[in-house]
Structures are given as C-alpha cells and as structure tokens.
Amino acid sequence: MGLEMFFSSTGLVVKGVLLLLIVFSVVSWAIIMFKFFQIQKAFSESGRFMDFFWKTKRFDTIASQVDRFGSSPLTALFNEGYSELKQLMEAESGKPDHGGLSTDLGGVANVTRALRRATNLEVNRLEKYTTFLATTGSTSPFIGLFGTVWGIMVAFEGIGRTGSASLAVVAPGIAEALIATAVGLVAAIPAVMAYNHFQHKIRVLVKEMDSFSTEFLNIVQRNIAGK
C-alpha cells in the first residue's frame, strides 16, 4: 500500500492528528532553520565585534560603527551601556561642581543595570520560539500515540463487527494506526535535538555577554578612577 493510500484510508480523528503533527513539524523546522541562522550569525559577528572592540580603544568610534555587527548580542549590550554612560556624563557635566562620573552617585551601578537589562532582552530574543521546539518535542509523541490508540480502537471495532480476528483483518488497521506514532516521532526527534543544541549555544552566548559586561564595566571603572 502506498504512503498516500495510508493517509487517505485512515479515519477522521487520525487524519486530524496527522495534520496537527505535520503542522508541528513544519513550524518546528521553520524555527530550527531560523534559529540556526540567527545563532550562527550571532556567534560569527560577536567574534568580529570583539576583535574590533579591543582594537579600537575609543567608545565613540565603536559606537559609530557598531551597526556593522548588528546580529551580535554584544552590540546591544555595548549600545545600552554606552548610552547610559553618555547620559550620566551629560548629567554630571551639567552640574556646577562637575568633577567627572562618580561611583558615589551610582553611575557605575546605573551602567551595570543597563547592561543587565540589555542582556535579559538579548537572551529573550535568542530564546524566542525555542519553547515551541520544546513543546513539539515533548507533546508530539503523545499526540501521535493518541492517534494510534484511536486508530487501534477503530480497527478493533471493525474486527468485532466482522467477527474475524485473522492477521489479514487485524494487521492493516493497526499498521494504519501506527503511522500516527511514527509521524509524532518524526516531528519530535529533530525538535528535541535542535532545542538542546540551541540551548547550549545560547548558554555560551550568555556567558560571552556576561564577560563583555564585566569588561565594559572594568573599562568604565578604570576611566572613573583615572579622572
């Protein structure tokens, strides 16, 4: 029996289950491809941005060219940290007893908070859609199993109606029902694998962001201490 015959000969509930699983699979693969390109680009541009960051000593120069590395989450951190720093500097320069950025006023703490907020936003951005992968990975086998159970129920009902329990009567119904579990697993396995892979990559990126935040704050602190 052909594959297309399998789909056409199943019942309405099993058809619905198959359709749902196919939608899950299509969306999962769309997310997998999207996240793959996004994270890949984030890694490559983060590396390039860090090189540029350490080569260029001036924040204003970096800020003017930061758009070249738009896909890197580190650029978001830099932008936020630099904006906060600039605002604080402007606020301090407007005061009559202007003596530079002071830790007493909570300037560095403000920058730290800005960096943390930016980190959180970037993590959210990187983790966007991955929950769907987790959901697909955990629920698709069960949805498929439901389709199989339903299909077997219908098959047994048919067996009871015809009164024949020979393999010729039982086997086709069960084979048709089992396809739901197979499709469920086909949807779930790549989703789980991709979810674990992306989680690992995101964890690495989060560590890079933390390191960058620390470096950024160190530079700010050194500048304040030097003034």
Partner: peptide, 18 residues
C-alpha cells in the same frame, strides 16, 4: 529612554523553506 528589544526578521522565509 526606553529599552526596546531588537526585532528579528520573521519566520516567513524559513516557513516557506520548511
């Protein structure tokens, strides 16, 4: 100022690919 998350391109292209 309000911190706004950067926007990514949607899933349109990858959905078509999928």
């Amino acid at each position: 100022y309000q911190l706004v998350a950067r926007k990514d391109t949607g899933l349109g292209v990858t959905t078509a690919l999928s």
